[in-house]
Amino acid sequence: MLNIKALSVNVEGKSVLSGVDLDVNPGEVHAIMGPNGSGKSTLANVLAGKSEYQVISGKVQFSGNDFLTLSPEERALQGLFLGFQYPVEIPGVSTENFLKTALNEKLKFEGKEELDAFDFQQLLSEKLQQINMDKSMTDRSLNQGFSGGEKKRNEILQMLVLDPKLTVLDEIDSGLDIDALKQISSGINQYKSDKNAVILVTHYQRLLNYITPDFVHVLMNGRIVMSGDYTLAQQLEEKGYEWIQAEPAVA
């Protein structure tokens, strides 16, 4: 589904990613872990098409198509969803209207019939229930005045409504208390299927107690320095990131 080959990225002239390789197939959950400043968020944002990241070299293919030439909206319509680390507050745009617009853009792109107000309401309340979120949240302006946990839950709600092929969640677990973490994990687990894939970008192993990844990758200094299964995350939890730096790079 997603094939990243030798991807190198600069931000403001500084190298942030240098030669990242990653392959993600349908049905898989990948965790990308690493210390602060290792380039985890850059990877997530580059995939979504944020403009201040300059791709220096390498390739990203999504379902066989070159992804890097596409605009952010085209990437989303192809089936990519980025859950933001810091969801933006947008006063004056209601969460519900925003979601309805986004969903109908997607349906239009797929040549399907757009949802009317009634059908959308039904879908929305079903998805709200899945993550135990109150309807009143979606009447409010997008993320405005939301707590950290509410913002993250709102990202998961959007994921559930838009039902993307590939979901990249950038530090979805940061700033969450244990209840919010459980609800969000439950949302992700309900979304997961053998047709879609999830990339969890995270600093801590905590989230992985609730969502078991098939692969764990360690990103350091702009490269994936180690990959393994779930046990790698447990090792990181015990020993921190420093022991990897001491080891010679294993790919």
Binding site: P72, V88, F98, T101, K106, F109
Partner: peptide, 14 residues
């Protein structure tokens, strides 16, 4: 904010 909306599949003009 513009990027946030576009990342949800809403085109730039809209």
């Amino acid at each position: 904010a513009l990027f946030y909306l576009r990342a949800r599949g809403i085109n730039e003009k809209m």
